[in-house]
Each structure stands twice: as C-alpha cells, then as structure tokens.
Design a protein around this nucleic acid. Structure first.
Length: 424
RNA sequence: GGAGAGGUGGCUGAGUGGUCGAAAGCGCUCCCCUGCUAAGGGAGUAUACGUUAAUAGCGUAUCGAGGGUUCGAAUCCCUCCCUCUCCGCCA
C-alpha cells in the first residue's frame, strides 16, 4: 500500500506518479471518501467517549450502592446512535481500504518513461552469444532428441504447461539449484530457508498478490482455502510480518529454493512451446529486508547476486531497467535480467529484481526500531530470482548444445553432477 | 480424525462483568549511591489512528481474529485461526 498520509496530503503528486504507469487514480473519489472517514471517525469517537464516561459513572454509582436507574435512562439512545455511526464508519473504511489495496506502488524517480516492454532500457550486457557452425536447436528439440524431456507424458497426467524431465537432465536441473543456493549462501551471505508452499490469503495480501491478482493463483478447495505460492518471495517476505526488528538486525538476506505455481491466466497462446512458461517451475529466490535508506543500494547489490550465477554458468545476458508501464504492481523499480537463448535468437527474462520500498512492509506491518528516535519505522523489502531454475536449464541446453545432439555440462555444475561433463 | 486444555505487553505470569492498556517479576533505558566488580535505591519502558506546530497534552481503538449480549467485556455467548496434552492414523 501507498502511505495513506501521502494519498491525503500529496494527492496530485501520487496521481501524477501513478499516471506514469498508465494507472488512473480517481483522486476526487478518494478525497471524498477520506473526508467522510474523517467526519465519521470524529463523530464515532466522540460518542464512544461519551459512552465510556457514562459507563464509568454507572460503575462508580453501583459501587457506592446508589440508584443507577436515572443514569441508565440518560444513555438509552446513545447505543443506537453509536451503533449507527460505527456501521457507517466501517463501511467507509472498507471502501477506502479496497481502493488503497488496488493502487500500485509509487515509482522511483529514476524509472524510465514508457508503456510496454519495448520501452525498457538496456543497462548492460555481459558475455557474447555463442557462435555455432550448425543451426542451433531450441531446448524442446534438444531435450526430446535426448529422450529426457517429455511434454506428452506431462500433458497426459496434468495438461498443458507441465513437463517431465528424466535421467541426467533431471539431475542437471537439480545441480543448477544446488549450485545457485551455494553461491547465494556461501558467497553472498544469504540464509537458506525451507518454507511452506501453501499459504493463507493473508500472506498473499501482505506481499501484494492479493486482492488484485487472485486469478493468477492456484487455490485449494477447502473451507479455509490455501494458496500455492507463486514465488518464494511470499513465504520469505512474510517472515517479517508483524515484526519490529532491532536496528542492528537489518539487513536480512534470505534465500529459498521452492517450486512456484502460476495459473498463467491471460497468457493463452504465449510461450506455449517448451519450458519457458509453466504452471510449475523451480526457483531460487533472494529476499532482503533493509533499512529504508538502504534499499536503492540493496537493489543494485541483489541484482549483482543474481548476475553472479549467470557469469559462473558463462551464460550471456543483459540487464534492463523496466520502464514505468512495465514495472510490476508493488515495485518502485525493477531490473530484469535476460539470458541469451540461441534457440529463439533473443534475450529472455530469467530474473526479475525489485525494490518494493515500504509497499509490502506497510501491508505486513514489518518495522524496525529507529536508532535515532526509538520509534518503529517501516522497513523496505526487496526480492529477485537468483535465478529461475527452469529457465536456467533452458539456457544451458541451448547455449551448451553440441552438433551431435549432446549437451556439454558447464564447468561449475560438474561437481554437482558427479563429474559428468556431457549429456547424451 | 476423537477427547481435553489454552492463546494477555520484549519475556514469565495475575486478572471471570465496572475506575484495566491491564498486578507482579524479569529484561531494557535514564538517574542516584557504592573508590573497581557484585549488590542497592528511584523514575521510565506497547502499537495504531484522530486532534495538534509537537515524537507535549487530550480522545479513540487494540488482551489470537471476526461477530454477539450489556449502560459497561481481557472477563459471558457464537464462528474461525493457532498452540499444547492424550488417543488414532501416517511420510
């Protein structure tokens, strides 16, 4: 959520900022509701104060054994008036909250203008796309040729957007995950966590997937439904829920390997071939909980942590700054890392690293006690993929493919593969 | 799944309808005393919102969450979430 104070006092600025995303914030409707809220709150609190005073007087009278009938008579309409005021206030508050939960985050000042991914700005490139003296195949052809990637089997048991990996390919996938976790925990100071894959709606509300993106989530059919996590960002960031950290407990760096589940509603027809867009995929996630003033630097750092993985794997990539229109709902600023895929002849997203500012922290009540004032202040949260394992596997297959149909195993993965240096 | 107990402030733990945002202890902060250390004395110590120049006052809310009863609820009733004990089942 955006700071309600900012919504109230800097309404025009908020409106202009959100307009950069192409989001139309109805400021008049908001301010009107806010005005009602104020009036009703004062009215309600006055009546509550009156009720409390009466109740106290009755209590004192009763203690002294005095007759309380006249006092009871004096409050007989108060309860009704208070109830009505409270009811109205509750409704207005709910409307305000609904409105606030639907607002995307304010963009950082240095986010470039633009409407779609075509306007994203390339920041840097690393590595050279490999030159093949044959026509490079895509990962689907490579995997099926090896007999280790089976989309048909997956489709027969689960439908579209699932896959089955077998043998050395499944092992390579696991090796990627182990390698990434080792890099992030041993070299970058992240603490590894094992977390639930099913969470309450409140957890998704805290990180911003709900209420707006309910259609993207898988949900169990129970009396109190649970949601399959779309990313480990959800359980990891929820570790900060209701916390008031001591100043020296930040920053916190957390990582977890989890499966991720996405319904991919609204992406019919996109990336239907292969493993690029699946209902289920594995990812190593990076989350940082930091002091507010440190978050811009932390974003640069976290992005670098994801890049390290690709450098070690010797996979060519580029980093782009997402433009205003392409930046996600809760982010103030996002860098996408795109890896080179020879089979497609283009760079494709393999990691998305975002600074959420206080957007999630406000929903989660994640705070830190200020060293200066001693008062609790909202922390800033960041997250990024470090990196997506399924897509990393695709990148390895396509960049390391050999003319004979085999695939070379990247040097850094061989220790995780029992020394195996090629598949097929 | 069955039976029972319980969720109170940073922690332990009192409080079964009235002046309770909440005893007491621990911890923490500040001050005093003590020639070090240890011990002792005093004061303070939740969060959010509203009002405000104010992180001063004052008001409101919060004792797992949401409803209800009542002039008045931490305390009574209902629903849900969670924890613990015993039994069953189970990787």
């Amino acid at each position: 959520m955006i700071d309600p104070k900012a919504l109230r006092t800097a309404t025009a600025d908020v409106q202009a900022n959100l307009a950069r995303r192409g989001f139309d914030f109805d400021a008049d409707a908001y301010l009107k509701l806010e005005e009602q809220r104020k009036t009703l709150q004062v009215e309600t609190e006055t009546l509550q104060s009156e009720r409390n005073a009466h109740a106290k007087r009755i209590g004192q009278a009763k203690a002294k054994g005095e007759d309380i009938e006249p006092l009871l008579a004096s409050v007989n309409t108060l309860g009704e008036r208070l109830g009505a005021a409270e009811e109205k206030l509750k409704r207005v508050r709910q409307s305000l909250r609904d409105l606030e939960l639907g607002l995307p985050n304010l963009l950082a000042a240095d986010v470039p203008d633009g409407a779609s991914e075509d306007d994203n700005v390339e920041l840097r490139r690393w590595g050279e796309p490999p030159a093949f003296d044959f026509e490079p195949a895509d990962h689907v052809a490579i995997g099926e040729r090896l007999g280790l990637l089976d989309f048909d089997a997956a489709a027969s048991m689960s439908g579209a957007r699932f896959t089955v990996m077998r043998g050395e390919l499944a092992r390579l996938h696991r090796a990627l995950i182990q390698f990434m976790l080792d890099v992030q925990t041993r070299e970058h100071g992240y603490e590894e966590a094992y977390v639930p894959y099913l969470v309450h709606d409140t957890a998704l509300l805290g990180t911003g997937q709900l209420p707006k993106f309910a259609a993207d989530q898988f949900k169990t059919d129970a009396d109190t439904p649970l949601y399959l996590i779309p990313t480990a960002e959800v359980p990891l960031t929820n570790l900060a829920r209701d916390a008031i950290f001591k100043a020296d407990e930040l920053p916190q760096r957390l990582t977890a390997h989890t499966p991720c589940f996405r319904s991919e509603a609204g992406s019919h027809g996109q990336d239907t071939r292969g493993m690029i867009r699946q209902h289920q995929f594995e990812k190593v996630e990076l989350v940082q909980l930091v002091h507010a003033e440190d978050s811009p630097a932390a974003l640069e750092e976290l992005t670098g942590h994801a890049e390290t993985v690709l450098k070690r794997l010797e996979l060519p990539y580029r980093v782009v700054t997402l433009c205003a229109g392409d930046t996600g709902f809760g982010a103030t600023k996002t860098y996408d890392i795109e890896v080179w895929l020879p089979g497609q002849g283009k760079y494709r997203e393999i990691s998305s690293c975002s600074n959420y500012g206080d957007f999630q922290a406000r929903r989660l009540k994640a705070r830190v006690r200020s060293a200066d004032t001693g008062k609790p202040e909202l922390i800033h949260t960041l997250n990024g993929s470090g990196v997506a394992a399924g897509r990393a596997l695709v990148a390895v297959l396509e960049n390391y493919q050999l003319q004979d149909g085999g695939v070379r195993v990247p040097d850094v993965l061989q220790p995780f593969m029992g020394g195996v240096s090629r598949i097929g």
